[in-house]
Structure formats: C-alpha cells, structure tokens
Amino acid sequence: MSHTAHIRSHRKPRRNASTLAMRAGVAGGVLSTLAVAGASGSANAAEPVTQTLELPTLTADLATQAAQSADATEQAAAHYQLQAERDAAAAKAAKQAKADLAEAKKKAAEAKKKAQEEARQEAAARASRNAQRTTLSTTVGGDSTSTSTSTSTSTSTSTSTGTSTATGSAAAVISFVKAQVGKAYVSGASGPSAYDCSGLVQTAFKQIGVSLPRVSQDQSTAGTQVSLSNLQPGDILYWGSAGSAYHVAVYVGDGMFVGAQNPSTGVVERPLSYDPPTGAVRVL
C-alpha cells in the first residue's frame, strides 16, 4: 500500500459495480456488432452479386405513336387488298367484254352470210320465174290455151279483165294484208311483226275463218284454179307451177298484189308488172 493510501483524499475513486457492468455491456455490444458485421461481410462475400436492370417504361406519347403506326399498317394492308380486288374485277370484266365482242362478231358474220344466201336464192328464183313466163300457159274461159308470151303481155292481159272491187270476206282479207305492209320478212314467220310469203297468206285468211295449208306448194292448189285474166280481189297468186309453187301473195285489185317478198323488201304492195305471177287460185 502506498504511504498515502490511508489518506482519503489521495485514494483513487472506486468504480461502482453498475458502472463497470454498463461499460462491460457496451464493450460486449460493440464486439458483438463487429462480430456480426464480420460474419455478414464474409457471407456476402461468398454469395454471387446479382444486378437487376429495369427497362424504361413507355410514356403516353410512345404508346400513342405505336398505336398510330399499327393503324397505318392496317389501313395500308386494307388498301392493297382492295386494290387487288379491283384489279381482279377489271381483268375479269375485260375478259368477258372480249368474249362478248367475239360472240357479237360471230353472230354478225352469220347474219350477213344468211342474208347474202337469201338474196342469192331470191335472185335465182326471180330468174327462174322470168324464164318460165316466156312459155306461160293460161286458162281463159275454162279452155286451156298454150301461149308463148312476154312478161309485159301476160301482165297486160291480167290487169285488163280482172275485177277490182272487193266485197265481203275478200275485203277483210285485203284490209288485213294491206295493214301488214312495211313489216319484216322472216322465213317461217306468221306474224304479227314479221311474215314469210305463205305465212302472210295463211294468217290473212285465218282472220275470216278460212284454214289454209302453211306452205306455198299446198296453197297453190288449195282452191279453184283461175285465169290471170279473170282475177278478183282476194285471189291467191302463186309463182311456179301448181303444187310446186315457191312463192304466193294476195291479189288486192286494180292490178296490185300484197306479199312478203324477201328480207330486203319485207311486206310490200306492188303492181303485177313488178313480178308477174304464174297462176292463181280462188278460195272465196
């Protein structure tokens, strides 16, 4: 012991137990913290470090632009599709128009060929009639007389002695055929807008209840044979021989007849001198 220890004022103050305990606790706490930190550091050093990247978030402007771009792409696709459909339709229409034009040309050529053939046949028939009339045989007053006359002489005889006034049923027949003048000639037609020669005659007599055969050959023998010098209105004129006639018409009086002549003239009223007939029959 120090030689001054017994003096109170020279003694070192004693630390009380609570102070020492607190200091020990603090020190222990610090040491514990350091130990935990060290352990944690060691643990962290052992674990791999993972870095997380955050992608930028679309703003309202970017979203709007993306939507507009999508709309534009969709509209462009629709436009191209519509254009393709229009092109396909135009190509189809052009193909159909080409086919229609070819068909129209074909029909026109066929119609032209048919008209030319009918005109040729009509010319041949007219030439044949003219040849036959140079040796025309007529029946006068019930007697058969063979005469070789010219076309003009035959016509003059026919018109000089024929009756010109139509009465009764004959008047009705003549009124009907005159009403058809100007209508078309169509082979095989019996009206109302077109006729051939025998179709016009048959239809005219049908108006008054008289039934006639359909073709010229049969109509030329349907009634009583009469002389061209004794014609009456309503008589049926024929060209060629009886039973094999190739053309017929109706005598309407005053040296005139009405007939469906050919495709070029249609139904006409002409004088007997225009195309003198071979014979005539009377059914009224």
Results as ranks from 00 to 15, higher is better:
residue 253 G to P: 02
residue 118 E to C: 02
residue 56 P to V: 00
residue 177 V to L: 05
residue 109 A to L: 08
residue 195 Y to Q: 01
residue 276 P to G: 10
residue 7 I to K: 06
residue 76 A to G: 08
residue 41 G to V: 09
residue 63 A to Y: 04
residue 18 S to K: 07
residue 168 G to V: 09
residue 256 M to K: 12
residue 263 P to F: 02
residue 274 Y to N: 02
residue 212 L to M: 03
residue 209 G to K: 03
residue 259 G to H: 15
residue 90 A to K: 15
residue 113 K to A: 06
residue 132 Q to W: 10
residue 26 V to E: 00
residue 97 A to R: 15
residue 203 T to S: 12
residue 78 A to P: 00
residue 221 T to L: 10
residue 232 Q to M: 04
residue 218 D to E: 14
residue 268 V to P: 01
residue 87 D to S: 08
residue 63 A to D: 08
residue 148 S to V: 14
residue 245 A to E: 00
residue 102 A to H: 03
residue 69 S to E: 00
residue 150 S to C: 10
residue 198 S to D: 07
residue 95 K to S: 08
residue 13 P to H: 11
residue 239 W to C: 02
residue 67 A to G: 02
residue 10 H to N: 10
residue 95 K to M: 07
residue 15 R to C: 14
residue 277 P to W: 01
residue 157 T to S: 13
residue 93 A to N: 05
residue 138 T to W: 10
residue 243 G to R: 12
residue 259 G to D: 09
residue 15 R to Y: 11
residue 62 L to N: 12
residue 18 S to C: 12
residue 177 V to S: 13
residue 35 A to V: 14
residue 147 T to W: 06
residue 230 N to A: 15
residue 275 D to W: 00
residue 168 G to S: 11
residue 79 H to I: 02
residue 223 G to R: 10
residue 143 D to S: 12
residue 106 K to V: 00
residue 209 G to V: 07
residue 20 L to D: 10
residue 76 A to D: 09
residue 33 T to E: 06
residue 166 A to M: 14
residue 122 E to V: 02
residue 156 S to V: 03
residue 261 Q to E: 06
residue 148 S to N: 14
residue 13 P to Y: 06
residue 38 G to D: 05
residue 216 S to Q: 04
residue 202 Q to C: 07
residue 41 G to I: 09
residue 86 R to K: 13
residue 142 G to I: 05
residue 73 T to N: 14
residue 229 S to K: 01
residue 151 T to L: 13
residue 112 K to M: 04
residue 137 S to C: 09
residue 36 V to D: 08
residue 268 V to H: 00
residue 269 E to V: 04
residue 65 Q to G: 13
residue 266 G to N: 00
residue 159 T to M: 04
residue 91 A to I: 05
residue 44 N to R: 14
residue 62 L to G: 11
residue 127 A to D: 06
residue 157 T to D: 01
residue 165 T to F: 01
residue 72 A to S: 15
residue 215 V to Y: 13
residue 159 T to Q: 03
residue 208 I to P: 15
residue 69 S to R: 01
residue 233 P to G: 05
residue 51 Q to V: 14
residue 216 S to M: 01
residue 6 H to P: 03
residue 32 S to L: 15
residue 204 A to C: 09
residue 205 F to A: 12
residue 186 V to Q: 02
residue 223 G to S: 12
residue 41 G to R: 05
residue 185 Y to I: 05
residue 2 S to N: 05
residue 79 H to C: 08
residue 126 R to S: 03
residue 143 D to G: 10
residue 76 A to V: 04
residue 186 V to G: 00
residue 253 G to S: 02
residue 34 L to T: 08
residue 183 K to F: 04
residue 167 T to G: 09
residue 185 Y to A: 11
residue 17 A to N: 13
residue 165 T to D: 03
residue 58 L to P: 15
residue 22 M to C: 10
residue 115 A to N: 13
residue 198 S to R: 04
residue 134 T to H: 09
residue 246 Y to V: 02
residue 14 R to T: 09
residue 38 G to A: 14
residue 16 N to D: 11
residue 241 S to G: 13
residue 278 T to Y: 01
residue 136 L to P: 08
residue 176 F to D: 08
residue 30 V to F: 06
residue 103 E to N: 09
residue 169 S to G: 09
residue 213 P to Y: 06
residue 234 G to H: 05
residue 238 Y to N: 00
residue 7 I to E: 04
residue 234 G to C: 14
residue 151 T to P: 00
residue 61 D to L: 13
residue 27 A to L: 12
residue 194 A to I: 07
residue 166 A to S: 10
residue 27 A to D: 08
residue 89 A to T: 06
residue 181 V to E: 05
residue 131 A to M: 05
residue 88 A to D: 12
residue 67 A to Y: 03
